[in-house]
Structures are given as structure tokens and as C-alpha cells.
Write a protein that binds this DNA or RNA. Structure first.
Lengths: 114, 114
DNA sequence: TTCATATTTCAATGGCTATTGAAATATATG
DNA sequence: CATATATTTCAATAGCCATTGAAATATGAA
């Protein structure tokens, strides 16, 4: 990830409502959520929400697909992982100190250890 | 880390010059760097740099101390670690998926394995 | 086709952000 | 004290951001 892309991702997340939207989508996982449900849960005006989705999308943090008349937005985990990698570069002798970090979609239920 | 603090940290990093400043300080480590040297390396006007330092400081991402007439700025690694923790919450079954992530100051030289 | 639902588009508005340059402050040195 | 260096303060400016509400578009259902 380049500097410019990192700034874009950071700027997209640096706003209360947008951060809430993103975190909600992260919780939900790759299936995503229709815009209307996000609007309801977070009490956001539809047009404001479109504005925020556009910014998250430009930063590569979410994707959209249409389903009937609904637009379904979902978190794009790769981008967050790239951002985490970028932020942890150069902090431990010039090499990333967190190679194992990876943001994956949440499971529906916690996997119970045997 | 709370939502508000995360937004503050993200906003502080979401600007090219400021991100450069922060990353430079991360490379340098806890000893920090005088404002003037940061200004020289990144070609930033002194007053602009003060402006950016203030924002990084408000977000808890850097600290300052005086040394003679110089102000020495240093990265505050704890805050970045808290931010990384915040960003990786809720992405793996509701539990952070990256408990081992920790941003520590870079060593002067890489430790050579025995 | 007509109506209803879901979302986007657009223009207007107020507020914040980054940069600039000049002046002020703080510390060090002769 | 007088001067030089390091940084901050301040006011001005231009541009971007988030929100609002009304109108437009797209799809689905009767």
C-alpha cells in the first residue's frame, strides 16, 4: 500500500458516522447489509449515507452489489489488512512487526475448541 | 480505545504531510527528533509543522520535550497500538484477531540471531 | 401502466483544514 | 545586554467536508 492510498483509507475512517458504518459492516461480514438497514441502525439520512458509502468505496474499504432495489454494501477486508500492514511498517527495525495480522470476516458463531 | 479517540487518531494520520511526519518519528524511535530536523527532511514550513505536531499531539500520537531551544518530538507507540487494536476488533468472531500486534520502537541495528 | 420502495443526485449551507507569512516568544551565546 | 537560532502564535485565505431536503432514478408489485 502506498502513502496516497493509506491517506485515503485513513481519511475515509476518520469520521464518526463513517467509522460506525464501516465497523457495522465488518461485524456483519462478507454478506454485507442493504443501505437501508445501515441507515436504520445508525439513524443516518439516506443521502448522507450515500455520501459516506462513496468515500468508503473510493478508499477501497467497502464494495457494493445490487439485489433487487437494494444496494448491498460489504466490508473489503483486504484493504484494512493492507492498511494495518502499512501502519506497522518501520516500527520494529524497519520490518513489519506484525506479519501475522489479518482481518478476516467474523464467524456467525465462535468456533468452540475441541 | 473509544470511538472518539480512534477518529482523532485516524484524522491526525489522514493527511499526507502529517502521515510522513509520524512515520519519520516512528523510524527514529523514542529519542525523537527536533522540529527543525523534521522540517528540513520533509521540506515543511515551520509554522505548518507546528500546526501538524499539534494535531498529532492532540491525538496522543506524539510527545514533545524541550532540549535547549529545540523541541523534540517523538512517536507515542502506545496510541498506535491502541488504534491497531481498535481497528482489528470485531473482525474475527467479535474478538480481536490480532492480539499479538504491537508496535515497538525500531532498534538501532537489527538483532542478529545466534 | 401505475404505485410504492430503495437509493442516488444535486444544490445550498456552515464549518473545519492546511498553508502562508509576519510578528512574537524562548533559549543560547558573545 | 545584544544578537542569533528555534519554534510558536496569529490572522488571512482558499478549498474541502458533512448535512439537509427536494427531486430524480431504478426496481418491484398490483
Amino acid at each position: 500500500m502506498k502513502n496516497v492510498e493509506a491517506v485515503a483509507a485513513l481519511a475515509a475512517l476518520a469520521q464518526d458516522n463513517r467509522l460506525d458504518v464501516y465497523r457495522l459492516l465488518v461485524e456483519v461480514g462478507p454478506e454485507g447489509l442493504p443501505a437501508g438497514q445501515v441507515a436504520d441502525k445508525l439513524r443516518l439520512a439516506p443521502s448522507a449515507l450515500t455520501f459516506h458509502f462513496d468515500r468508503l468505496r473510493d478508499a477501497g474499504l467497502v464494495t457494493v452489489r445490487r439485489q433487487g432495489r437494494s444496494m448491498i454494501y460489504a466490508a473489503q477486508f483486504d484493504t484494512m489488512n493492507a492498511l494495518l500492514g502499512f501502519l506497522t511498517e518501520n516500527c520494529c527495525g524497519g520490518v513489519s512487526c506484525a506479519p501475522a495480522v489479518a482481518c478476516k470476516p467474523a464467524r456467525k458463531r465462535a468456533k468452540i475448541p475441541a
